[in-house]
Write a protein that binds this DNA or RNA. Structure first.
Lengths: 368, 368
DNA sequence: ACCGGTTACCATAGCGCTATCACACGGATT
DNA sequence: AATCCGTGTGATAGCGCTATGGTAACCGGT
């Protein structure tokens, strides 16, 4: 082990490192504390505390006097000291098992947008639902780090057992999911079925009748919701999915490719495919290419997510977009405003709507 | 101890919310503090502190006795209390202006892997270099949140002025960049030029001579490094880039498409293009399609990054991969071990090598 | 005058940890 | 012996904030 290099002098010379060798930050601009502000404003610390926490019970005159001192010195309370006293940190955790990198980046961006100007910080905690101790691990870290709250994305957001545990430890949370599973205060509802229905109408309106759907895995509620919406949309045109045209994928490129190949090998192959997400849709592109079919002339394809690839690939993919950045923003607003009503305006709505983006992968059915 | 929940009678009834309405976490498993451990082990708090911080100066016998109590109750020190006393939090910030979502997700994953089992938390801080107050903002948050350290990715990692400021406020940092710009302890070097040289050799070995390169923006050091490496690789085959074949892109799909179109419109069009990243490479795909050229028969293309799209698109893209997850992991190890030598093994190496992945977008030159 | 009831504020005790300093103790040096 | 170490340990004072409980000042109503 790397022993301390210079010979000891003071009492208590650490053998290893930490005890006294802790680097000390040079306090260039000597950070003011609440006591300094109190002294400068001729009031007690508690009164300053009341003012910066908007607790009321302070005369306007006193408040103004304190605020002037606070603003003058640009004072902001120390997050750690506050966390210690409140037994609650200003960290918001994003707990997520989303496989889509763009989703992650967008949701983080949205959360951060809502946080700008606050002293909240965003901590990321990806997770793996196959870990048996996951619930315990999450609860452990939430209580130990005293997270202010957590934001959950699909599919971990759909885990009611985990939610039960979070309630038990009184951890505020916001879940993002395709349907409402909770009180509005705890939910962002994405209404995936609306987007899927829109996709169905678009395909049906183009004249297709042999329409296939590759849905996602059961572990994602969105898979079932997109299927449901798709059926609803088709029904409006008096159509339904032939059971042979309904396949289960895994939200992955490979599964899309396999299901696509399977569909295109059918004697009466479908002329349009709605894939549960863009990854699978692009898999179908690949299957179509191998089968020598042109998109959209021979096969129309619709995806879901509006991943970056949707506009990179040719033909560009008709798909459904969710306002993910916005979802992140309102999730954070919900979390913060719900607990700390004076600190932030609550978001207007807790449900968002997907929208269909028609591009070049869909075309009217050509009667043969 | 916590006052029992008797009905509000105390003086000081809050007008608004916060003062007394703060939800109190039910201490299901009454968290032990260092004092409890000290009492149970019949030693002072300080001695317990010494043991859990590996500060030495404790007899082995005493240490074992304390560790037995600690393990028995699963005690872990409170992060906020420790942060307050140490004037340093256990938060590591990822400061990044990377446009590639996969990069972000991977680097986060790597950092988190290194952090598992520690009490460090990862805080994300995307940034925008066009914000004029960026340096001040970063310094402000680093000092105010007392970040343990920061990890910087390209291109913000290449900002020497920012680094100077970080040194000034004594904020530990690790930079990830294409070339060494700092001491090894502060750098992860990605040697982009090695990957680019490899790409050049691959293209040259296929017999191409009319070889183009679309490089990235000057604000990314990787752009210059990839160009440099590419030239070096070509030189080994006695080749060089015709100035007309050297274009400046912006690391975006659109810029790749435009530069691609420009190249393919030349009388003597290039037969191979090395794009500075995959996004631009896919843009060149688009340009080739519009020009009616087949890949790889008429045009070979090589990218850089190995983005998800590289394997989704057809033909799959020959590209250069960087071990981004691994980079994140060693960045975190470097940061933690450098400051806290007993807590983590330092990473073996602080430089990583890119590798060429030959796929289907490159083929031997067909003599016409 | 008195009086409970409110409002505005203060003094101070924590929150859970680390750092400072003191002290006791054995062994080596005067 | 007397003195000096260096080593192991404990009491205690912070770190910067919030919460508790109290005390003045002020209120209208007797």
């Amino acid at each position: 082990m790397s022993k301390s290099t210079k010979p000891g002098s003071g009492p208590e010379k650490p053998l290893a490192t930490t005890e006294t060798s802790g680097r000390r930050r040079s306090t260039a601009n000597p950070k003011l504390t609440i006591s300094d502000i109190a002294r400068l404003a001729n009031v007690s610390k508690k009164t300053v505390s009341r003012v910066i926490n908007h607790s009321g019970l302070v005369r306007e005159e006193t408040r103004d006097k304190i605020m002037r001192v606070v603003d003058k010195h640009g004072y902001t309370p120390d997050p750690q000291a506050r966390a210690l006293a409140l037994r609650r940190s200003y960290l918001i955790a994003l707990i997520s098992n989303q496989p889509n990198p763009q989703y992650i980046v967008d949701i983080q961006q949205g959360i951060l947008e809502a946080m700008t100007g606050t002293s909240y910080q965003l901590v990321v905690r990806p997770c793996d639902r196959s870990v048996p101790t996951l619930h315990d691990d999450i609860c452990e870290i939430v209580t130990h780090q005293k997270f202010f709250g957590v934001i959950l994305t699909p599919s971990i957001s759909e885990d009611d057992e985990l939610i039960g545990r979070l309630r038990q430890i009184e951890c505020p949370y916001v879940r993002i999911a395709a349907v409402s599973l909770d009180t509005p205060d705890n939910m962002i509802e994405t209404h995936d079925y609306v987007g899927a229905a829109e996709a169905a109408r678009h395909i049906a309106a183009l004249g297709h009748t042999r329409i296939a759907h590759i849905h996602g895995p059961d572990s994602f509620l969105s898979a079932a919701e997109r299927l449901r919406g798709f059926k609803v949309g088709l029904a409006e045109y008096g159509l339904r999915i032939d059971p042979r045209y309904l396949l289960a994928g895994g939200y992955t490129f490979d599964s899309g490719m396999e299901c696509g190949a399977q569909l295109l090998a059918l004697a009466a192959r479908p002329t349009a495919v709605f894939a549960g997400n863009d990854e699978m849709a692009v898999g179908v592109y690949q299957a179509a290419r191998r089968a020598g079919l042109r998109i959209p002339e021979d096969l129309s394809i619709v995806g879901f997510d509006d991943s970056p690839i949707a506009t990179r690939i040719w033909p560009t993919l008709t798909t459904v977009r969710l306002p993910i950045v916005h979802m992140g923003r309102i999730a954070a607003q919900l979390l913060i405003s719900n607990h700390d009503r004076l600190a932030m305006e609550p978001p207007g709505a807790t449900s968002v709507m997907p929208s269909l983006l028609v591009r070049n992968s869909t075309a009217p059915l050509i009667r043969e």
